[in-house]
């Protein structure tokens, strides 16, 4: 028996969500009175792997093969399933991000293990194994039971506090029976944003809507984001109009994010927009219309013209940063 956590890496590095997942795996293993094993695919340095030990990982299985630099859903899920069987894993964990969503369903089928995606915390009960997850795009929660002996979970962002739990780590190198020819996906090239805070990772997000009136008015949004170390985002019509790149589109049909602070400027707060941001810890709304629905979701609000308010906020943040 074990809890197996699949740890995605980004060019050989882990992120806060990785440490969240280890913390969760650790808490779950405690609940199930079993141990946790972490699986990492692709080249990651020993130093980086050891960081997982700060959050409770004690045994790490690593596949350093460079073939695993490109995510191939079929091959990756096959290897994860093989390791899950080898270590007798009862629960297999993923983060609810691009890679987790790509792999968990395949692992679920290959192990015939029921899947709950986007779990928002530890099981409500272990028998029956019951989890809470968001449904209807964040408008409510469901309690879902996994009926099979083996279970697969993806963990929603911000569902558990990252908790330090230091100790020694044992790293085991595993070479799965996989050849280059098994990879059906060929990477041609990658385009990466450079020097910008990544929206799905950001602790603070400054977001603009149609109320910004024109793409030429984004200067203050970008300046405020810069000063706060925040990522920028936008509502759907703004990306549809081509005012901002589609990677910034947040909401039900765009990115679902859960920062500590979400600042919505000139965004009315349509249900589909809120679906993507309602897990933020704090929401600030700036809008000329005091009846805009965004104020119902917000924790702090200012009624007024964004183009007047943003420069004042920028000034205030500069003063804060200086002091």
């Amino acid at each position: 028996m074990a809890v197996l956590a699949y740890m995605e890496n980004w060019d050989g590095k882990f992120k806060k969500s990785s440490f969240e997942l280890v913390s969760y795996a650790n808490a779950l293993a405690e609940l199930l009175e079993t141990n946790i094993i972490v699986l990492s695919l692709g080249p990651v340095s020993e130093d980086e792997l050891s960081k997982l030990g700060n959050y409770g990982a004690r045994k790490i299985i690593t596949v350093p093969d460079v073939l695993f630099k490109t995510l191939d859903n079929q091959v990756f899920s096959k290897v994860i399933s093989v390791v899950a069987v080898n270590v007798g894993a009862e629960v297999i964990l993923f983060s609810h991000d691009n890679a987790g969503k790509a792999l968990a369903p395949r692992v679920s089928v290959s192990l015939k293990a029921g899947l709950v995606s986007g779990a928002t915390g530890l099981p409500l009960s272990v028998d029956p194994f019951t989890l809470r997850k968001k449904v209807f795009s964040g408008n409510s929660f469901a309690r879902q039971i996994i009926k099979t002996d083996k279970k697969v979970l993806t963990l929603a962002k911000n569902s558990i506090e990252v908790k330090e739990n230091r100790g020694s780590v044992e790293i085991e190198v595993f070479q799965p029976d996989v050849q280059a020819g098994d990879f059906k996906i060929h990477m041609e090239d990658v385009q990466k944003q450079t020097g910008k805070v990544i929206l799905t990772d950001a602790d603070i997000v400054v977001s603009g809507g149609r109320g910004m009136k024109s793409p030429d008015n984004w200067g203050p949004i970008e300046e405020l984001a810069d000063l706060l170390g925040a990522a920028t985002a936008c509502s759907r019509p703004v990306s549809d109009e081509g005012w901002r790149p589609h990677q910034e589109h947040t909401g039900q049909t765009g990115k679902i994010i859960a920062p500590n602070l979400y600042i919505a400027v000139g965004i009315s707060g349509a249900i589909q927009h809120l679906a993507g941001v309602s897990s933020s810890k704090f929401i600030v709304a700036i809008n000329t219309d005091k009846d805009a629905p965004v104020f119902e979701a917000a924790d702090y609000g200012i009624v007024g013209d964004a183009m007047k308010i943003l420069p004042e906020l920028i000034q205030a943040v500069k003063e804060m940063n200086a002091s």
Binding site: A102, P105, S108, V109, L115, S117, V135, T154
Partner: peptide, 20 residues
Amino acid sequence: NGAATGGMLAELLSVPSISS
């Protein structure tokens, strides 16, 4: 919000799947 059907179908059909 299961985010699962496509991946499961691919596994059942034994074909590659690409997400996102």
